[in-house]
Nucleic acid binder design. Structure first.
Length: 835
DNA sequence: TGATCCCGCCAACGT
DNA sequence: ACGTTGGCGGGATCA
């Protein structure tokens, strides 16, 4: 008899029946393993799939059809295959749910079939894990695997225990952009090259002792701090769970994706991915079992990514033989085109303020390129030293800062807003075409703009005492003057970049956060502005990249860069959306404020929290700003005061601790690097400008100057990091000069990151203290869900420095891919074969 | 065989 | 104390 597929529920039933023998056969709970008992029958995955599809809404169905047509997904093929088998007459026994039928990939397909790729915001797309698990007839554990990776892509977000919200692919492009940035900042490209190179070397000499070297080099790679990359709109939901938890799958998934986005042939072998991921987590011990486990996990992730059609399995044939690998088949992720446009627009649009901000951002970028830590990190001994220091700090760590500070930071955010706001309109315009809906948003944005103009005034007024605010403003206005030299020298054209679209936050591990925290709770305010800056990429890097290198193993061919955003992707919209969201949020906040005016510190915390994220994330900031702007200054002031209740003058309290302090604190710890010595004139010049913001201090130390960067690079890599690292010494690496610059740039950012981390850390603590995290997820308020919740956990940047987006922009032209500090590796021919 | 990766134990967490 | 999450790796399947 042919096996038929019992409907899902029935299947469940059968399951339980099967398990009769065993005690607890709860359909819902993980059934005891029936194993051979398994009936021979029932539902084939295919059948289930079909049923699901048929049952699904037309929308879903159509989507599914498309999928099948495309035949892109391996799972589908497999499913078909299975089906055929059944049809052909294999029997029941044979049809026993084979392993394949139970594969995560298939399961994921089923899961995805239940939800539309682009759910309307209106509908509540809640996901109840229990339900899903039951309906799909799988253990909940499996659902977690799927959901976790979906979460890493922000396709879902956790609302509460057992509940998730489905976002579909609306956030996908943004997420990918963010991931790409982070990946670039982490120099994944280089790491990949390093690993490949190492492998190559291995071919010749027997390894064994080599492990040491490997370990060392890996250790250097560790960008351990990075945890979870967040998006503006989605900030906190994901974080609702404890930060510590965001460890593995989620993060691994993001990193894995980053590898694809960063590597030129967008093909990543499991082996390489595993090595890199391991390297990040723990330096050294490449122990075999760990490697194996990593691989296992990667398969899990790969399966769901495959189901999402973001990647597909291929085999890379090298001299060694065939190695399993995956090829990126998802959308091309370019630096935000829109952003660029925006930039341009903003530039053209005169509002001084708007312009000023971008410039400021640029400055910050330059100052804080990316990843400063790495410099010393590279050297084992240095790493240890750093770690030790960090640990000490951790221990010393002070109590969470008062909420008030947060609010102060909010204020700062305001200043940043204008520029962003200015951009909004442009974005809206672009989006207009596709979405009629957007019109509304346009309005919002426009209003926001208007508000922006007001903003400048607002910012300064509220807090006269505050040093930072005033200074910032001027700085912003002038940016060109100060910063220009640096970028202009490199590439004037590119300068104007603002990465508005891609702001993101990274979740740090508590431990790391601590480290940062130690620095200065008090500075919290300061950091925020920086955060704003952060979103922006460093121009420098871009320029540097521009230099371009041709080496890469580009053979494989990636899709043309030009392609970039497809109409279907809606990134532009998003930016708008985010801004809109921000506005909403800000409004909400205001309401909150008005309502809660007299609340205690905790309350203020909430508020501040809300703000904070916004501050950090560009979109949010804008919103906040807009809101405030909308209100009379007085109101703003009132709000501020409310938030700061505790402090007589919120600003004052905050202000005291400014850049100078930060510098004092931060520098000692992190600036130890030789790099400091070489300051480029440019950087120095820039420093003054940024001085207001805490960030500056750190940046100053770093050198952007090409020559200096080269020196640094040389020192570090050659002197400090002899072995596996890409060293000029290596004959192969002829292109070093080019690559060097990016490196140098990246360094400075580190400091900034630290500061941010600090801030975030503090924030975190606050949250924890209040236990706010789940607070907002209240089921009762669906609407709320739509908007980003104020609650967040630590979202910060990684050492790699999300701040530096530069790489992204650089890539846009398509030239730079290999440029970043990449080593040229002798290439074996790569042959990619599909399965 | 090596590549895949299902399964579910059990610890960390949350409530 | 109990339910939820999800790290982890043994060992079954697949190719």
């Amino acid at each position: 008899r042919s096996v038929l597929k019992t409907p899902l529920k029935q299947a469940a039933t059968s399951h339980s029946i099967l398990t009769e023998i065993q005690p607890d056969c709860q359909p819902l709970t993980t059934p005891p393993k029936p194993k051979e008992i398994l009936p021979a029958d029932p539902w084939t995955p295919t059948s289930n799939l079909k049923m699901l599809i048929s049952a699904a809404s037309p929308e879903i169905r159509s989507r599914e059809q498309r999928r099948e047509l495309s035949n892109n997904s391996r799972e589908v093929l497999q499913a078909k295959h299975c089906l055929q088998e059944h049809l052909s007459g294999d029997e029941y026994e044979k049809s026993q749910p084979s392993r394949k039928e139970k594969s995560l990939g298939l399961l994921c397909h089923k899961f995805l079939a239940r939800y539309p790729d682009y759910p309307s915001t209106a509908e509540n797309n809640y996901i109840c894990l229990d339900e899903v698990a039951e309906e799909l007839n799988v253990e909940r554990r499996r659902i977690y695997d799927i959901v976790n990776v979906l979460e890493s892509l922000h396709m879902v977000s956790r609302l509460a225990k057992n509940r998730y919200a489905w976002h579909g692919r609306h956030n996908l492009s943004k997420t990918l952009q963010a991931l790409k940035k982070v990946g670039e900042e982490n120099k994944y490209t280089q790491q990949i090259q390093m690993i490949k190179k190492r492998e190559y070397e291995h071919e010749f000499d027997l390894d064994g002792e080599r492990n040491e070297e490997m370990a060392r080099s890996f250790g250097s790679n560790e960008h351990s701090e990075m945890s979870f990359v967040e998006l503006p709109g989605m900030e906190f939901r994901a974080a609702s769970v404890n930060s510590r938890k965001d460890k593995s799958l989620r993060v691994m998934s993001q990193k894995f994706v980053m590898l694809f986005l960063v590597s030129t042939p967008q093909i990543v072998s499991l082996e390489v991915a595993a090595k890199i991921l391991i390297g990040e987590d723990q330096l050294e011990d490449l122990d075999k079992s760990k490697f194996k486990t990593k691989i296992r996990r990667l398969y899990d992730i790969a399966n769901v990514l495959s189901s999402l059609e973001l990647i597909k399995k291929v085999h890379v044939t090298e001299e060694r033989g065939r190695k399993p690998a995956f090829k990126w088949t998802g959308p091309d992720v370019l630096p935000n085109v829109q952003d660029t446009k925006l930039e341009t627009t903003s530039t053209s649009c005169p509002p001084p303020i708007s312009e000023s901000i971008p410039s400021k951002e640029q400055c910050s970028k330059n100052l804080f390129p990316s990843r400063g830590k790495q410099n010393f990190t590279r050297h084992p001994s240095l790493i240890k030293l750093v770690k030790t220091i960090e640990n000490d700090r951790r221990k010393i760590q002070s109590a969470p800062t008062s909420p008030v500070k947060m609010s102060a930071s909010t204020d700062q955010n305001l200043s940043a807003l204008p520029s962003k706001m200015a951009q909004v309109p442009a974005i809206a315009k672009h989006q207009l075409e596709g979405q009629s809906k957007k019109a509304r948003e346009m309005k919002l944005s426009r209003s926001a703009l208007e508000s922006n103009q007001l903003s400048p005034e607002v910012v300064p007024k509220p807090e006269p005492p505050r040093v930072a605010a005033p200074s910032q403003q001027p700085a912003l206005a002038q940016p060109p003057a100060v910063c220009p030299p640096s970028h202009s020298s490199v590439s004037p054209v590119i300068l104007p970049h603002t990465p508005a679209g891609v702001s993101y936050a990274i979740y740090l591990h508590p431990s790391q956060a601590h480290t940062v925290t130690t620095y200065s709770p008090s500075f919290m305010l300061q950091p925020l502005p920086c955060a704003n800056v952060t979103g922006i990429k460093s121009i420098n890097s871009k320029v540097l990249n521009k230099t371009t290198t041709e080496e890469g193993d580009n053979q494989v061919t990636t899709d043309d860069p030009t392609k970039s955003l497809t109409a279907k992707e809606r990134p532009p919209i998003k930016s708008e959306t985010s801004s809109q969201r921000c506005l909403k949020r800000s409004q909400a906040l205001q309401e909150d404020n008005s309502i809660k005016k007299c609340r205690s510190d905790e309350e203020s915390l909430d508020t501040s929290l809300t703000f904070f994220p916004s501050g950090y994330l560009i979109p949010l900031t804008q919103c906040t700003h807009g809101n405030k702007a909308g209100f009379s200054n007085k109101e703003k002031a009132g709000i501020c005061s409310l938030q700061h209740t505790t402090y007589s003058s919120p600003i004052a309290g905050v202000i005291p601790v400014t850049a100078s302090e930060l510098k004092a604190v931060n520098i000692p710890a992190f600036q130890i690097t030789p790099l400091n010595i070489m300051l480029s004139p440019t950087s120095i010049a820039a420093a003054p400008v940024l001085s207001n913001s805490c960030l500056n201090s750190s940046n100053t130390s770093s050198a952007h100057n090409p020559s200096s960067s080269v020196l640094n690079f040389t020192l570090q890599h050659v002197g400090l990091i002899p072995a596996g690292v890409q060293v000029p010494a290596n004959p192969v690496l002829q292109h070093m000069p080019v690559s060097l610059q990016p490196e140098s740039v990246s360094y400075s950012s580190e400091n900034m990151n630290l500061q941010e981390e600090k801030v975030s850390k503090n924030i975190l603590q606050l949250f924890d203290r209040d236990g706010l995290s789940e607070k907002y997820s209240a089921p009762s308020v669906p609407k709320e869900l739509q908007q980003p919740q104020p609650v967040t956990e630590n979202f910060f940047r990684t050492p790699g420095g999300p701040n530096t987006v530069s790489s992204l922009s650089a890539n846009s032209d398509g030239t730079d891919r290999m440029s970043q500090g990449t080593l040229y590796i002798p290439q074996r021919k790569l042959e990619v074969s599909e399965d």
